[in-house]
Computed example of a mutant assay.
Amino acid sequence: MQMVRVTLYGGPLDGEQLDVPAQPDTDDPGIALPAAGCSISGGRSWYAPAYDGRWCWEGDTA
């Protein structure tokens, strides 16, 4: 599986970089990541690709 490095924008992980699949296996290419700054205790922060290719924070989830 080919991976690409992306930079996260907004939310508690702003500026972090990580590798994500170049072609995700699902219709929803976003990713839920544990984050110390998440607004939900024990939750995860959801990042997904935006129209311009950046991976942007879309909110927090339990």
Rank of each mutant, 00 (worst) to 15 (best):
L33I: 10
L8Y: 02
G30V: 08
D14P: 00
P49M: 10
V20N: 03
G11P: 04
R54G: 03
Y51L: 12
Y51D: 15
C56T: 14
Q23W: 09
E16N: 08
T61H: 10
Y9P: 01
G15I: 10
P24I: 12
G11V: 05
P12M: 05
W46G: 02
A35E: 03
Y47H: 05
C38F: 01
R44F: 08
W46I: 14
D28F: 07
T7F: 01
W46F: 13
E58V: 10
W57C: 07
W46Q: 06
C38H: 02
G59I: 10
M3E: 11
D25M: 12
A22M: 14
T7K: 12
Y47C: 03
G59L: 08
G15N: 07
S41I: 13
D60V: 08
G43A: 01
M3I: 09
Q23K: 15
R54C: 03
A50L: 12
W55K: 00
T61L: 13
A50H: 15
Y51I: 13
A36T: 09
G30R: 07
Q2S: 14
A62N: 15
G10C: 07
D60E: 09
L33R: 04
W57T: 07
G43C: 04
V6P: 01
D28R: 14
Q2H: 11
D27N: 08
G15Y: 05
G10R: 03
P34N: 02
P34C: 00
D28M: 11
L13W: 03
Q17Y: 03
I31S: 04
D60A: 09
L33W: 00
I40V: 15
L8C: 07
V4L: 11
M1Q: 13
C38I: 04
W57F: 15
C56P: 01
P29G: 09
G37M: 06
Y9I: 12
S39N: 12
T26M: 11
D60Q: 11
Q17S: 11
G15E: 04
Q23D: 13
L33C: 06
D52N: 15
D19C: 06
M3H: 10
E16H: 11
V6E: 04
G42P: 02
Y51V: 15
R54F: 03
G43Q: 02
G11Q: 04
G59W: 09
D27H: 11
D27K: 11
G37K: 11
A50S: 15
C56I: 15
I40F: 09
P34H: 01
A36M: 06
W55L: 01
G43V: 04
T7D: 02
L18M: 12
A48N: 09
G11D: 06
A62V: 13
P49G: 07
I40H: 10
D28K: 13
G53P: 05
P12H: 06
L8K: 04
P21W: 09
V20C: 06
I31G: 03
G30E: 07
A32S: 11
D27F: 08
Y47P: 00
I40L: 10
Q23F: 07
P21S: 10
R54K: 13
E16C: 08
D19N: 12
L18Y: 02
M1C: 10
L18S: 02
G53S: 08
S39T: 15
P24W: 08
A35S: 07
Q17P: 01
Y47M: 04
S39C: 12
D25G: 13
T26N: 08
A32I: 04
G11K: 02
A62Q: 14
